[in-house]
Design a protein around this nucleic acid. Structure first.
Lengths: 189, 189
DNA sequence: CTAATTATGAGACATTTTGTCTCATAATTA
DNA sequence: TAATTATGAGACAAAATGTCTCATAATTAG
């Protein structure tokens, strides 16, 4: 990506606007992310918000894609404890209002907004692929014998975490994480 | 619940409004459920919509609670095939835009609207409890030896289905369902 | 250092939306 | 048949939306 050498004033405005929009999404939900309120909160002029993002929905999308969720990066051997740490981090972050708001807004927004749907597909594909890479790594090291494809494994691991945090609004304890990992294949250790 | 003997005109309006609101939620998302648009689509007067639901968010909530999801009702013995059928039905329904829209709007809306949060808690508690009843039934029949609590079992069963349909936007095949059921305990059959 | 460029905030402006009325009318009920 | 009541149409003020212009200040080019 070529980033055009941006005028520092524009960069400042852009950043202030994105921050305010994120703040509004957090506090009051996506419906609160309007040009007017973002202008108020960010301290910028209303026209400036319109200049940078003519449509509010695009701003919201940028807020969400801007908050990238760094999960399951850089697998380490042995894979099991690494996977446990990643799932723990995922569970912990999903309890943070910031992350939950972005994640659930992406999930729901994909139903009607193709742009958001693409964003979601990107995130999910990344997660699925990273989990796949990690599990293959574990299998090559003789650490596990896989019982599911990468996408199935991702569903088996992440699905329950999501359900527990977003639906049951409860904590994911380490026992549950262990149980999830157990059921993705047969571990030799 | 005492239902006040309602004027047929009011009942008709109410029904038309709810239908239109559901339709709008489906087609364009919760942001489209405004008094004005609902009035247009339903063919009722704008004032009538305001009379019945002074706040649009309340109307949206009624739309969602009105669409009740009849899952995991009335467990049958043997439990395993019944559980399989229920999960299949859940997966199939979650692929319907109607159900997905309501479900995901509830999930996301609970972050900011306490009323929606209560609604979600009710749904989830019902599902968890029904799954729990079914699994205890199976255990008493010697069909399975449980390896998880009711809420854990619900997360293990429903979580992956939700992740596969809502996030990976893919089909839940019967093999996956079997695998899910397998991992909720040790089955004797 | 100076001059040209450019993003900004303030605000004007027409348009649309929102929320609250009133009122004549038609459906319902007593 | 007469009284009640929900409705649609529309008036109305207030707020929000989207698009302008313009003077100003920050930035950049020369």
């Amino acid at each position: 990506m070529m980033k055009a050498p941006l005028d520092p004033r524009a960069a400042r405005s852009r950043e202030a606007i994105l921050t305010a929009a994120r703040q509004l999404l957090l506090a009051e939900g996506p419906a609160a992310v309007t040009h007017q309120r973002v202008a108020q909160v960010s301290g910028t002029g209303r026209a400036t918000v319109y200049r940078h993002w003519p449509r509010a929905e695009q701003l919201l999308l940028d807020v969400m894609t801007g908050t990238d969720l760094p999960f399951f990066r850089a697998p380490q051997s042995p894979v099991r404890p690494w996977l446990h740490r990643q799932l723990r981090q995922l569970a912990d972050e999903l309890r943070l209002p910031t992350v939950a708001a972005v994640a659930l807004t992406v999930i729901q927004g994909s139903l009607w907004d193709p742009g958001i749907a693409r964003s979601r597909d990107g995130m999910i594909a990344a997660i699925d692929e990273r989990i796949g890479v990690a599990l293959v790594l574990a299998e090559r090291a003789g650490e596990v014998e896989l019982g599911a494809s990468a996408t199935d494994a991702a569903a088996l691991l992440v699905g329950p975490v999501l359900y527990r945090t977003a639906m049951q609004s409860g904590r994911v304890d380490d026992d549950l994480i262990d149980r999830l990992i157990d059921r993705v294949g047969t571990w030799r250790t």
